[in-house]
Amino acid sequence: MAAPDPLHIDEDSVTRRLNALRAGVLGANDGIVSVAGLVIGVAAATPDNHGAILAAGVAGLTAGALSMGVGEYVSVSSQSDAEKSQLRRERRWHQVRPDYELEQLVELNMETGMSEETARRAAIEQTAHDPVAIHARMHLGIDPEEITNPWHAAFASLGAFTLGGLLPLLTILLVPTTAQVPATYTAVMVALALTGYAAARWAHSPRRRSVIRNVIGGSVAMAITYAIGSLIGVAL
């Protein structure tokens, strides 16, 4: 898997996609690993009980998807509220202390390597164009045009978790009992490799590392839940 060519990367495009990427990949991976671990654990304990596997899988899929959606909404809402509050304070500061804000922008420009003369000239032009936006980006690290919508993040996580979780659930229910665990394990490994590859390609980051990280994490999770399920099955 060759590394992406850094000369052909649209950095603005990457930045715009990072929040959606985080929510989507996190949701899909959680769905795949959580539901796979759950159904494999139940299958290890009661391999012939399709009813128990179905009930556990559907319950885990539903609870996990809702948890991801609500958690993402609350998290992103808190972040969005904090960013909006900072922007409101920034607007107020520009009304009551414009000279101070200009000097602050001069210093911020100088920290990027500009001379004082160039930094001041740039600050004056930046302030004339959009003082709040430039201060938000340089001082607060916020892009006023890129504040994340919590609903978008919530539905992305919920949908991704559901799609990811359906794979192991359907696999373990549709294959013969003797092949339940190996078939589910194989399907999950392929899915995790694909999500790791897609995430890395979308974010223009190293693909091999992303794939290996996903596959190893999923393998460990399923091995642990299978072992626990087997122990419980023996005890029962």
Rank of each mutant, 00 (worst) to 15 (best):
G113V: 03
V215R: 08
I32N: 12
R89C: 08
S80Q: 11
R121K: 08
H204G: 00
N49H: 09
R17D: 04
E145Q: 15
A63P: 06
D12S: 08
V96M: 07
R22L: 14
A43H: 06
V35A: 11
H152I: 14
G24Y: 05
L26Y: 11
W93E: 13
T171V: 14
G217P: 01
P98Y: 12
L105A: 01
V76M: 03
P47N: 04
R120A: 01
A65S: 07
G196H: 09
E101L: 08
G24E: 01
G41I: 06
L174M: 10
S75C: 00
S85T: 15
H135M: 14
E83N: 10
T178Q: 10
R120K: 08
H135N: 13
V25C: 01
V74P: 07
I228Y: 08
I9V: 15
G31P: 02
I53Q: 09
T118Q: 04
L7R: 13
A156F: 06
V42S: 08
L105T: 04
G51R: 04
I40Q: 11
D143C: 14
P206E: 10
D30Q: 05
I124A: 10
Q79A: 13
L7I: 02
H139M: 07
I228R: 13
V25Y: 00
L38W: 10
M189N: 01
H204N: 07
D5P: 10
H129T: 15
T46V: 12
G64F: 02
D48T: 00
A20W: 06
E116K: 01
T178H: 08
T15A: 14
Y226R: 09
S80F: 01
E83R: 10
L236A: 14
A221I: 07
T177D: 10
P131S: 13
I124P: 03
T225V: 13
S205R: 13
V74A: 01
D12M: 04
V58F: 09
I142F: 14
G64Y: 05
Y100D: 13
T127Q: 14
V234W: 15
A45S: 09
I216S: 05
A223F: 13
R17F: 01
A2I: 14
D5H: 08
V96N: 05
R207E: 12
I134P: 06
Y197D: 01
G165N: 04
Q126D: 09
A227N: 06
I228S: 06
Q180T: 09
A63L: 08
L7V: 03
G51N: 02
T118K: 03
G159F: 11
I142H: 10
V181K: 06
T178D: 06
S115P: 01
Q95I: 10
T46H: 09
S78L: 11
D81T: 12
S77V: 02
G196D: 04
T62H: 02
T118I: 02
W151A: 13
L66K: 00
S205G: 07
S157Q: 09
T118E: 07
G31C: 05
M189C: 03
H135R: 12
A3K: 13
T118S: 00
A203L: 05
G141C: 11
E146G: 05
A128E: 14
